[in-house]
Nucleic acid binder design. Structure first.
Lengths: 202, 202
DNA sequence: ACCATTTTATACCGTTCGGTATAGAATTGC
DNA sequence: GCAATTCTATACCGAACGGTATAAAATGGT
């Protein structure tokens, strides 16, 4: 057993760049040329480090879920904050990300879910997206269930429908961000979207 | 001047099939093999009839706008119907279409807008999408403005923001439909989405 | 120093892409 | 019937795709 020449690039950093390319172009749209150029390496190095394009995509997706998608959820559980405020902060964080705050326009999962429906993706990649696409809805469902248990949300609401509604809305803002709507325009509809949970008294 | 052999396929019918392929796979994802197979013709016939892939896409997009997207708008102007009912019928018609009632899953424009942001589309195709993507928002803005002029909608609402909100929501349902959500699931959130315009009194 | 091992870089593989040349089949005008 | 014209079908083009063979450059163990 002996070590040879050491890798001249940071694997995590390369994965991060690959994630951004998939984020912008989807799985099929991201060519190996696009990927390796952004990663700053060449093809054999990518294959040695990640296996192939499909496994690179799976790792990039996991990296997105852990280091990007999960970041917004912390706003849902900030202590000493009203439920409506926590939810608004969560939505604003997500929408800011969609508008290009820390990555390409739109939502990585929205792009890949849209592409996966075309059935041009390898099976394992498609299944990775299939498993990931329900996570936000699960998170929000638990959030609303807990809020009801803690008497912070009326029992007249259905946590499942509520979660579905906000995930739907977030997929919508992701599409609008992809269509070059700016952050302030999208924020204008956040208060409107939040009315469903706390109808404005008249 | 003389006529030669006559075309053995119906041009409009072939265009319709091409539209369905672009609807499912987007511009880049739809290969000439996919297109010509679905259209029931071979490549030279396609090039003779439509020019090239890009022009076929432009015609297919126009066909979608005229024969599919415009169909839902009629519900907005049905006489002797309350505003909220007309809006609900409009949304339900659109969502039913997104769930595959008369075409592939999702929304043709949502798919192409998502793809256009990757910048892998030829210029003319990208511009076609760019021009089309604002139509629904225009339609709804005019709808809400007219409703205010006819005293059917409170002046406290902003027609532009309201239109933006519903277009956002419809892009969201399109993504959910692509993710294989069924019609009944999506319909469950329609009443929720409509609450923004008529807050439930308590 | 030297060999085993690992990474890098270039060049290449078969396949599929959008697009076309070419030849045969079908239709009209005369 | 015959020439001119138009469509169809097969075969092909250069380019780009995902993936790999191969050899040089760089490291660690002894």
């Amino acid at each position: 057993m002996a070590g040879g020449r050491q890798r001249s690039f940071d694997k995590q950093q390369a994965l991060e760049q690959a994630m951004r390319v998939f984020w912008q172009k989807g799985y099929v749209g991201a060519s190996l040329m696009d990927l390796t150029t952004s990663m700053g390496i060449n093809k054999p190095s990518m294959y040695a480090a990640f296996g192939n394009k499909e496994q690179l995509f799976i790792l990039a997706t996991q990296n997105y879920l852990q280091n990007y998608a999960a970041d917004h959820a912390v706003f849902l559980h900030q202590p000493d904050t009203p439920l409506i405020t926590r939810l608004k902060n969560y939505l604003m964080s997500a929408v800011a990300s969609q508008c290009g705050k820390d990555g390409p326009k739109g939502c990585y999962l929205s792009v890949c879910v849209t592409e996966a429906a075309a059935e041009d993706m390898p099976a394992a990649a498609q299944q990775t997206i299939h498993q990931a696409k329900g996570l936000a809805e699960q998170t929000l469902t638990q959030f609303f269930q807990q809020a009801q248990a803690e008497q912070q949300l009326s029992e007249t609401h259905d946590p499942v429908v509520l979660a579905q509604y906000f995930v739907t809305w977030l997929h919508g803002t992701a599409a609008m961000a992809r269509a070059d709507k700016c952050l302030t325009e999208l924020e204008a509809t956040i208060d409107l979207a939040l009315k469903v949970i706390e109808p404005k008294p008249h």
